[in-house]
Design a protein around this nucleic acid. Structure first.
Lengths: 207, 207, 207, 207
DNA sequence: GATGAATGAGTCTTCATTCAT
DNA sequence: GATGAATGAAGACTCATTCAT
């Protein structure tokens, strides 16, 4: 006897594997069912349709990721460290939950196009963490005021995300996740710190 | 009487519009044909299959973009200016060829997954332009040597690309392409210049 | 509730009717589905593709025919009677399972051409029955030794088969299946019996 | 400058090769055109449609074959020799015009099915040659009267035709065309001669 | 007459979804 | 709740035939 939640999760986990393997459009419901050890029809007891599975992955898994990041970040006060923390955690996802990362990355891109009226709120919430860090730092005089948060948010996220796409696609790794996180954070910090922030930063250990 | 090349182009242009509208998988050959004022079968005189159209878009249009960027860049010698030029041109594409940009951006992400053995050479060539600029700058002592080119390339491209995704998806524009190009370039320059590079840069007018 | 085997058979029987009516290439899957009171897609639950249906007809139905012939023949010891039995049964198929006979006859001819690497083993097994009868008779001194079994087999089968083609195509029947079976068997027996065989034969009642 | 007849023939010859290679339904007009060194459209200047090419092959080539057989036969008076001559010529066709033989053999079988209202008159004329020989022999007391000409015609033709199918499909040849022609003719002669015919036959050299 | 680019009707096959058991 | 056989709509692709040049 299996609890309802278990079966829901089993399907989601199977779907992540299958979507990561083939992409959303080349994945078959029957393949997900097989991977989840469940009948095809059973999937429709837990999800409305194929799109719904993908959306659920976004919502639920992004939710967990956001919670994780926020929890970790709660113990930090320095915006520089927060940014570094975000970078590390984002890239680490590649190693820890590679398949999930692939799905979020690749399919998220097109989801807005093929799922009518679906605006990925969780994704916005996720990148807004970056925006908050910047704004906080700007208010504290650590980051330059002229930097437009909207731009910074996207640039930083984009940089990290393209980086992780690299890990997904290539098997060769000339450098580790930590190196990448450090370098990218550094690039953006150096690029956005005020003189005051720079002084402050000298005592940080991100370098 | 229409020359062969014209019909090929007519189909490619129609496909760009249709793919941009629906995404690759939700686009129908018949819709492309209609958009190109051509019979369904005619498409198969110029392309092997649906995938082939997408690949052709990548190859041909990326080819043109690369040529453009390289031509423009040829007149510049300063790595900082080159970087800025790249950023401007990449983002400008969004405004000039919005649909093409959408296709390249969204579908490129998944192409590696659904088209067996297709490694987008043109895309690699495109991002390698960034790598070259950095390396050149490093040799000239303008950029810090410890920055790993592979990381910089991806971070810079990712930042720009995520930025342009913003334009694609949202209709509201709080700031222009030029502002975004300037800010992002600045972020990365500030983040990677050496002291020498910084001095040099003071005479640049990117800010 | 219908057992799996039943649906398989329903489709095969429908396909036989449709193929007999139009020939393989002019038959539509949708027509078979309609004839079988089944959805188009259902056919693909039981068969890989259109060719597979045809091959299945050959394999399964020829299998039954061969079993029938062999069972009937088991009760006979005289090669002459066996030959006559074979002839009767082959021609009788035309009346009993006219459509199946048509399909086997007409499509079998081309199957080797359009189905790559398909060598109809069942067909070979079927005609080899004739060869065995002859060889047995030759060993027993009833049939002339100089008759090459390979030739006899094909000649006898060809004679019967062309005869049945006549029934398939023409609706007018100047003579019955039994007459034809008797005459053809007689022709071949008279043509191949030794003197000893002829004496023996005088007590047979094939004439 | 090529005469009209030449181009017609070029296409027919190309079609024979292509049909022999792939079968009628798996042959493409474009392949025939290519094989004939002619544009696709040109074919429609000489033939109404694809079926028309096949019918033309039957009519024209069978016409030539019939003429040949009748010419050869004109010099013979003995029905036994005539029959043997027919057998030899039919089987020889396999070696001399293998591709044509394949087309006639295989496609003829189904032609009645897919070409509406096409009754191959030439084919009937061809097999009627056999019928005439038998009837002539029966009148002259050489062949047994109880043999039904309709049956004999089909049996003899079928025996020969199945034999030649063997040559088409198998590359191995344990015996030659002449041996086969002799054995088959013998089988049928022995099977149908009267006592008078048998005496007469002793002076023939078919054995 | 000859060409071959263009046409578009036609069909096999797939697969998300349903529903009787 | 669970199953998986059945459905049938939908779409990529083919190819005989046409017709402007």
């Amino acid at each position: 006897m299996m609890k309802v939640a278990d079966k829901h999760d089993k399907i989601v986990r199977a779907a992540i594997r299958v979507f990561a393997r083939n992409g959303f459009f080349n994945s078959r419901i029957s393949e997900i069912a097989k991977e989840a050890n469940v009948a095809d029809g059973t999937i429709y007891l837990y999800f409305n349709n194929k799109y719904d599975i993908l959306i659920t992955i976004f919502e639920e898994e992004m939710g967990k990721i956001i919670a994780n990041v926020k929890r970790e970040m709660a113990s930090l006060s320095d915006p520089c460290e927060k940014l570094h923390c975000f970078a590390r955690m984002h890239l680490a996802l590649m190693e820890e939950k590679r398949e999930l990362a692939e799905v979020i990355q690749v399919e998220l891109r097109q989801s807005s196009k093929f799922i009518k009226d679906y605006h990925n709120k969780k994704f916005v919430e996720y990148t807004n963490i970056i925006e908050s860090i910047l704004k906080d730092g700007q208010e504290r005089g650590i980051f330059r005021k002229e930097i437009i948060p909207e731009i910074f948010k996207r640039a930083f996220f984009g940089a990290l995300d393209e980086m992780s796409r690299f890990w997904v696609l290539s098997s060769q790794k000339k450098f580790g996740v930590k190196t990448a996180a450090r370098q990218i954070t550094n690039l953006f910090l150096q690029g956005s710190l005020t003189d005051k922030g720079r002084q402050h930063r000298s005592c940080c250990h991100i370098t």
